[in-house]
Simulated assay, not measured.
Amino acid sequence: MYLLCTIAASLISFLFLKWLKRRRFCMDVKRLDGKTVLITGGNSGIGKETATAMAIRGARVIIACRDMEKAEKAVREIKATSHNLNVLHMHLDLANMRSIRDFCKTFLQREKRLDILINNAGMPSVLDWTDDSFSMCFGVNHLGHFLLTNLLLGRLKECAPSRVITLTCSAYKYQKLDFQDLNYNLFPFFTYCRSKLANIYFTQELARMMEGKGVTAYSVHPGYVQSNWTCHYSILFRIVMQVIMFMFFVSCEAGAQTVIHCAVADEVTAHSGGYFVDCRCASLRPFAKDAGVARKLWEASERMVKLA
């Protein structure tokens, strides 16, 4: 009897965990032949799965990342899986503004098209600083992608209709921005939450600015994904998180589905500036829909990265 109860409890627990981890999959099979897709951090995790999906659809795929050895390996694997040889990598360090400017200069010289920009790369909640003295989370997750997108915006407009997809996280709801200290770095998790909220405001303001110009923008919460973000932490933390991720987090393939959906589905164009979860446009907390704050953040970000 005890054995039967144990088996039944285990089965119920397994089914419950599978229910928690259920995700919609992008069913749109649209081809992307002749299109160019740029993905930051496309050498692993969600970024690599997204890059593979774009390559399978026939796109020219460029993954931009800091580690060239990992990038080369990822390109080989993506080519083998997708049977698309039009996949390449370029060096980009989002923690260094000079690297971003150099990357964009080289990209614009080499590439005549940019149809889909996927701001995928990100830093978890770490207490560290970028080369330009920004907190690592805010500097990479928001400011780096802010500068990158702005420097490539002309090419996106030339290739309209085009799309900008920025990965965020539902953790945005735990913090609000403090314009007296945007570079806040006292509690790493709070800094991470603020960077993810900034991604949402950035997307909304970009969509407003590009209205009628053929460029649409979307922020995506991919879910909690079994990626390699724990590599920035201690071995003990990694071991504990591996167990938790196995139980409750979704695979990278599942996590990439909403990103892919926003990249290819026609229906999303009616929701430019929207926040997407599980392949659907989702609601936001009221404070995350403040157009005045979004505009203020945009102007502050321009000053911080010396864009103006």
Rank of each mutant, 00 (worst) to 15 (best):
L92V: 12
I116P: 00
A198P: 03
N96S: 14
L148K: 00
A207E: 06
R31P: 07
K112C: 05
G34S: 09
G47N: 02
G212Y: 04
F237D: 05
R24S: 11
M68W: 07
S13W: 08
C137D: 13
T166R: 05
F187G: 04
M245H: 10
Q226R: 15
K157L: 12
E302V: 05
V29L: 12
I12C: 10
A53Y: 11
A288N: 09
M27R: 14
K79I: 10
A254F: 08
R194I: 01
I63V: 01
S82W: 03
M304G: 08
H232L: 08
Q242T: 08
L4S: 14
V293P: 05
A270E: 15
F14S: 08
A160Q: 11
F189Q: 08
S133R: 13
Y172H: 14
L206H: 01
S162V: 02
F103E: 06
G214I: 06
I260L: 13
L127M: 10
M68Y: 07
A300L: 09
V126H: 02
T166Y: 09
W129R: 10
K30G: 13
H91K: 15
M54L: 04
T269C: 10
I239C: 12
M247P: 02
L307T: 13
F107T: 02
T258D: 09
F146C: 00
T50V: 05
M247Q: 09
D181Y: 12
T166N: 12
Y192P: 00
A64W: 00
A59V: 06
G139P: 00
A95S: 15
M210Y: 02
W229C: 03
D181G: 06
T230R: 15
K213G: 06
G139M: 00
K173E: 14
F202D: 03
H142M: 15
R113K: 15
Y275L: 04
R23N: 09
D128Y: 08
A263W: 01
S195I: 03
A263Q: 02
R163G: 14
N199I: 02
L94G: 01
L206F: 04
W298T: 01
V61S: 06
C159I: 10
V61F: 05
T168W: 07
D28V: 11
L143R: 14
S283N: 06
V293D: 06
A64D: 01
D290R: 00
F189M: 07
